[in-house]
Computed example of a mutant assay.
Amino acid sequence: MSNTQNSSFSLLNQKEIDSLIGFLSEQKNSLDSDVLSQKSIDKLIKLISSDSDRIITDVFDPFAHVDNSVLATLGFREDVSQLCELKFSVNETTDYIILTAYNTVTNKELVITPNLINANDTTDWGCSISPVFFNRIAKVFSFKYTQQTHDAVCNCFAKHTYGDANHKIPEIYLPVNEKLLECLI
């Protein structure tokens, strides 16, 4: 914990501590016993003590239940050693995006849909997807993608979110450099 503390400021002031204790007291019947586990406390400290303007998006992982072995079950890839590229395109008729995985070893293609990740979801992504979410899909399934694909995802997202494909995208919607580099071909 010593590496997360900064002597120039306290992590929480008394009013924030009182508010947190009040909230936890009110919610104690609906909270699991592990709410204040050391892991949760460490995540909270990391979030509060971060000197970055970025919001830490990996604290709560919506993909925690997704197993990349689903691709082997579907007969798409035997294991993660087979390089698979995640591609991005737009359906000209519906204007919805299409995510396709391409296995460079077997030359197989697989359309990646929301219900592949969550069985209760839809078959369509919609008109855009945030670059950080696109990157997270690539990481979960151990896919790689090109800089050109990343740029296309960013342009589409900016166009549909801000009305201009060249609009600067706020950092909250972009993968951190380390995660981007892990996925780039």
Rank of each mutant, 00 (worst) to 15 (best):
M1T: 00
M1W: 00
T4M: 00
N6L: 06
S7P: 07
S7G: 12
S8E: 01
S8R: 11
S10Q: 10
S10T: 08
L12S: 00
N13C: 10
Q14Y: 04
K15W: 14
K15F: 14
I17R: 09
I17M: 05
D18C: 07
I21Q: 12
I21H: 03
I21L: 13
L24G: 05
K28C: 08
L31R: 12
S33W: 13
D34I: 03
D34C: 13
V35Q: 06
L36E: 02
L36V: 01
L36K: 06
S37P: 15
S37K: 15
S40V: 00
S50P: 04
R54N: 01
I56F: 00
D61E: 01
P62H: 06
F63N: 07
F63P: 12
A64H: 07
A64L: 05
V66P: 03
N68R: 14
V70K: 11
V70H: 06
L71C: 00
L74C: 01
G75K: 11
R77F: 11
E78F: 10
D79C: 08
D79W: 04
V80W: 11
V80H: 07
Q82H: 14
L83Y: 02
C84L: 06
N91S: 03
T93P: 00
T93R: 06
T94Q: 06
D95W: 13
D95V: 05
D95H: 13
Y96E: 02
L99H: 04
L99A: 02
A101V: 06
Y102C: 07
T104W: 08
V105W: 06
T106N: 03
T106L: 03
N107E: 15
E109V: 02
I112M: 14
T113I: 11
T113H: 10
N115S: 09
N118T: 06
N120C: 12
D121M: 14
D121F: 10
D124W: 09
G126M: 12
G126L: 14
S128W: 07
S128G: 03
S128N: 02
I129D: 08
V132D: 01
N135E: 01
K139L: 14
V140A: 04
F141M: 06
F143E: 02
F143M: 05
Y145K: 10
D151K: 09
A152D: 03
V153Q: 03
V153S: 02
C154S: 10
C154I: 04
C154T: 00
N155W: 10
F157H: 11
H160Q: 15
T161W: 10
T161Q: 12
Y162E: 01
D164W: 14
A165G: 04
A165S: 15
N166M: 09
H167T: 01
K168H: 04
E171Q: 08
Y173F: 13
V176F: 05
N177M: 11
E178S: 08
E178L: 09
L180T: 01
L180G: 01
L181W: 00
E182R: 13
E182D: 04
C183V: 05
C183K: 10
L184Y: 00
I185S: 10
I185F: 05
I185G: 03
